Computed example of a mutant assay.
Amino acid sequence: MTKPMTKTQLVAAIAEEMGADKKTATGALDSIIAIITKEVSGGGAVTLPGVGKIYCRERP
């Protein structure tokens, strides 16, 4: 099993994919995280095509 990608690695990959600098990629990732957190904490869900659906559910 491989180690999960860290935020730093993800930012670097996003920057490379976008052809942007790491500061721009960090801003983009932080914005996406904030939007998803706000939506899910409010009882909603977010679907990321090709990835999955992010939502909060009760667990025993």
Rank of each mutant, 00 (worst) to 15 (best):
E58L: 10
D30M: 01
P60L: 04
K7G: 02
I32N: 05
M5R: 08
G43A: 03
I14N: 00
T24A: 13
P4T: 08
I54V: 15
E17D: 12
T37M: 04
C56E: 08
Q9P: 01
T37L: 01
T8D: 05
L10W: 03
I32S: 08
V46D: 09
Y55S: 15
G52L: 11
E17T: 12
P60M: 01
A45M: 00
R57F: 04
A12R: 07
L29M: 14
I33P: 02
R57E: 14
G52V: 05
A20T: 11
I35Y: 12
T47V: 13
E39T: 15
G19C: 06
K38W: 03
V46K: 00
E16W: 01
I32A: 15
D30L: 02
T2I: 13
M18W: 01
T26V: 02
I32H: 07
T47L: 05
L29P: 00
I33S: 03
T37Q: 09
I32D: 00
C56A: 15
T47E: 15
Y55E: 15
V40G: 12
P49M: 13
I36F: 04
T24M: 06
P4C: 09
G42N: 11
I35T: 13
L10R: 08
T6L: 02
E39I: 10
C56G: 08
A13R: 10
M1Q: 10
T26Y: 04
L10M: 13
V11T: 09
T24G: 06
G19P: 06
P49G: 04
G50L: 06
L10Q: 08
I33E: 03
T26E: 15
V51I: 15
G42R: 04
I32C: 11
L48M: 07
A25T: 10
D30A: 11
T47N: 14
I14C: 01
A15F: 04
E16T: 09
T37P: 05
A45K: 15
R59V: 10
E39D: 07
R59I: 10
Y55W: 05
A45G: 11
T26G: 13
E16V: 04
E16G: 12
A28Q: 01
L29Y: 08
V51Q: 12
A45E: 14
L29V: 10
K3P: 08
K38V: 02
A13Y: 03
P49Y: 07
T2M: 12
M5Q: 10
T37C: 00
G19D: 07
S41L: 14
L48W: 05
M5N: 04
G52F: 12
I14M: 09
K53T: 15
E58G: 09
K22G: 07
G43Q: 04
P60Y: 05
T6G: 01
M5T: 11
P49K: 07
I54S: 06
K23M: 01
E17G: 11
